[in-house]
Each structure stands twice: as C-alpha cells, then as structure tokens.
Amino acid sequence: MEQLLQQIVNGISLGSIYALIALGYTMVYGIIKLINFAHCDVYMIGAYVGYVCMAKLGLGFFPSLLASMLVCTLLGVVIEKIAYKPLRNATRITALITAIGVSLFLEYTTMFFAGADVRTYPPMTGFMAKTFKMGDVVISAQQILIAVITVILMVLLQLIVKKTRIGKAMRAVSLDKDAAELMGIDVDSTISFTFALGSALAGAAGILVGVYYNSINPLMGVLPGLKAFVAAVFGGIGIIPGAMLGGYLIGIIEVFVAGFGYSMYRDAVVFAILILILILRPAGLLGKNTGEKV
C-alpha cells in the first residue's frame, strides 16, 4: 500500500512536468494544427536559463522561475514569428518539417555554446532540501513545489482562457480562424499569445525538472517532449483539461511501469499507449470524434 502511494506521489511529480509541457503542444495544435516539435527545446532552454540564474548568478528559485518563463515566452514568440508565420497557409508536412528544423537548431546551437555535457543544478538548501515522511511514504519539498506550482499555473491558464478577452479570442481562432478574423479578432497576435503562454509553461517545466532531477543537457527535451505530446493526444489534442489529465496519467503510468521492474520498457509502454489510443480513440479521452463531410 505504501509502495503504491509512493509511486503515485512520484508519478504526480513527473506527470506535472509532462502536463506543463503538454499544455503548450495542445494549445498550439488547437490553434494552428501544428505539432510544434520545437516546443520540447523551449523547455530545454527553460532548464538552461534556470541553471544560469541559479548556478551562475546565484538567484533564488522564484526569481529564476520567473526569468525562465520570461525568456521562454520571448523565445516562443520569436520562433512563431520567424519560422511558422510565413507557413500559415503551407501544407502540414511543410510546417512539421520546419518545426523539426527549429528543434534541431535550438538543440545544436545550445550544444555549440554550452557543450554537450550534462550540467548539474546547485544543491538545494533550506526548505527546498527537506523531505517529509508520512508512514513509509517519502515526499520531498521539491515534489510539493512541483505539484503546487503546476496547479497554480494551470488555474491561471484556465482563468486566462476562460475569463479574458484574449482567451476568448484564442478559443474563437481555434474553432475557425477565418470566421474569427472576419469578426475582427487579430489572429496573428492571438497565435503569438498562444505560443507565449505555452512557452512560459514549458519554461516553468524546464526549471522544475532541473531542480527535481538535478541534471540537464541539450537533448534533454526530446524524449519528455515526445511523451508530453503523447499526453496531449491521450487527453484529446486541442483540449486544455485533456492535456493536464493526459500528463498526469502518463507520468503515473511511467512510474508504475518502472516500479514493477520494467524500467527499461517504460518509454516503449508510453508509445504503445499512444498507438493504442490513436487506433481506438483518436480524439483522445476527452475529445469527440468527427468525420469528414462529403
């Protein structure tokens, strides 16, 4: 029983990270139908910014978190403006390959400047280094931090999407870009804003991972990025609560597979889930199936 609880605690921590990244994938896909492969590298950059702030500049965690989110927001917007905007009306495969190009560019540029080696975050001190025991279940302060920050960010995101003008615009554009434009919505800035939101969340995920796992490298985004995308598809791509649900589920499943001693197969299981969900319920857990009109 404790074992199970412990796994769930660990799963939620990991799932929080996936959920934060998945939100960016899902929002961007929802609005311009693009699998933004570069998103996982925005997350990697977030981890590096956090590293620079905490290890080199000696800033505390929260200022570093803000700095990460800010830099990633800018990065996301710049990527969209330079690489994706000219392709607004291009075919899907063109946009997808561009996204892969941007992804490789970010990875290898980081590698060029920061080196390919793993870097480690400075050890945590004070409250952040504490662990709490509840029976046999161990919860670290970092895990609590991850869970709380994730929930706060998600609530903020929901408020923005549901309650603000720009959130309404986002939903309108994702339903029908042309109609939204005719209704006077500034589509370009709405898309930029979507990238900004998603990237800020990825930045937060990056620094949280740095704090939690301690080590970062230029290719650290690739696999979590893929899994976060799986999470987004799992929950129903384009659906914000779906990405959250999918993120947590993927995190928990992965930790469980590892916990049962199949650690080497945990990535395979995630991809198997992806294929199964695509075949059985392509619209995802929270999505609705729609057919093509003839």
């Binding site: 690489a83 561009t98 190009g101 941007v102 992804s103 490789l104 560019f105 290898y108 540029t109 060029f112």
Partner: peptide, 8 residues
C-alpha cells in the same frame, strides 16, 4: 545547425 537552418 546548418542542416537545421537549410531545412527551415
């Protein structure tokens, strides 16, 4: 890096 740029 060049490969990526050429691609884009």
């Amino acid at each position: 890096i060049l490969y990526a740029l050429i691609l884009i």
